[in-house]
Design a protein around this nucleic acid. Structure first.
Lengths: 231, 231
DNA sequence: CTGAATTCATGTCAATTATCATGATTGAAG
DNA sequence: CTTCAATCATGATAATTGACATGAATTCAG
């Protein structure tokens, strides 16, 4: 095997700097040789809660949701993640099995590394491990803070919060195609589907947003922000 | 300075195995030489959100709450922690400032290390860093899972959940002195103080618990568990 | 010890949200 | 293209929770 021949496009990966800034070229080649890239389509399950963890994965492109099923079969959505703020699962280093499910809510490209190989490098390269910890820490901080924010709002404020979340944080646009159903919004903010639909309709009647199916256009952002903060 | 003379009782610390299982004796001495131990009394603030982080701390004894203030000055309680599941703050490695406040809800002993010294060791000792990451990961997993559980319950179920939490997880007893006020229970489960009080009264009237001020005695655990799960 | 402040407690009423019912629309599978 | 299922939508009603009021009990500083 001639190292000059190794095809390893990780070197060009946009995420390289984040995850591998403290990894040597040799290590990078070692890790990348065994990497696998998979494409998941909207709706596909990427990892399932309860399954055993033996891969380390990160999102190269797309959008995913983290969720958990209750005993009665209902889902609770924990958070949404896009590339750069999704670092495998929070529990890769603390549990043998996935605590949550991850599914694609937009077509997504996922890069998959063997967990043992990553762990071996983590054991030998403290700076890499610290990078990893920092990323995991940031991701969980975000989840906890977002949850607190949602928790202190009422129905309307929560729905406004979700719309602004997608507008400001995911799409950086005032108009976008909602990647999730009304039911999923409900599962995320902890309200019923009917009330989410009703609230969106109200916003439409009040000319705060325009709705064409899943396509949303924010018409009066100031008011939406106001509702998110005080409503 | 004679190393034989260094008084370092970290060697006997119950938490040593958790945080320093992969630390050499020399490193341990280095870290412990600059350690400081502080006692906080019930109600004392240990760290305050917004303050800059320059210490690494862990709880040797006692009970603390993590909380965050809203703009209107109301508090939201994120979680409670006892020794072994409180590893400094979740954000020590991801942020310069504390995202949450930590305060003692029982008299507590806290061990304080210089963050830079700990970080230095983390940079050089990958196994230590992995231990740390595992601990942080476990702590945040617990917070997220607990929050999901509370979120899917109604008032009564939430109050029952809190009572069972203290009985099963904190005190391992069916009777205990509640370390927090009714208002704090409300801040934790996201309901109003009045409704927490009312619910406790109801439980008392239904002979599920006995109440003497802050002293709680669980009289019918089966029913309380039932309410926690389905109510 | 004492007055002030906070916590605990309970009742009433209003606001918020869930549940149920029903139908239109959309999307996927054969 | 058609059929079935899921999603979206709206209304009516019930259940849940919050807000306000008021007073007792407890805690705490001086």
């Amino acid at each position: 095997m001639n190292s000059g021949n190794i095809k390893c496009d990780c070197e060009d990966c946009k995420l390289k700097s984040l995850f591998f800034s403290h990894v040597t070229v040799d290590e990078l080649i070692d890790i990348c040789e065994i990497k696998e890239e998979r494409t998941y389509f909207k709706g596909d399950i990427i990892t399932k809660e309860g399954d055993s963890i033996n891969e380390f994965l990160y999102l190269k492109e797309g959008l995913v949701k983290l969720s958990k099923s209750t005993d009665e079969g209902k889902d609770q959505i924990i958070s949404f993640s896009k590339p750069f703020d999704f670092v495998s699962l929070l529990s890769v280093f603390s549990s043998d099995t996935y605590q949550y499910s991850v599914s694609a809510i937009e077509d997504s490209h996922v890069c998959i590394l063997d967990l043992n190989v990553v762990k071996n490098h983590a054991r030998q390269n403290a700076l890499f491990t610290m990078d990893l910890m920092k990323r995991v820490s940031e991701a969980t901080d975000k989840i906890v803070l977002d949850n607190l924010e949602i928790r202190r709002k009422h129905l309307k404020g929560r729905v406004a919060h979700v719309l602004l979340y997608f507008a400001n944080y995911i799409y950086m646009k005032e108009e976008f195609e909602l990647p999730i159903s009304r039911r999923e919004i409900a599962e995320y903010i902890g309200m019923t589907t009917e009330n989410v639909i009703r609230t969106l309709s109200e916003f439409r009647k009040d000319k705060i947003i325009k709705i064409f199916g899943k396509y949303i256009q924010i018409a009066d952002k100031k008011r939406l922000e106001n509702i998110s903060e005080f409503g």
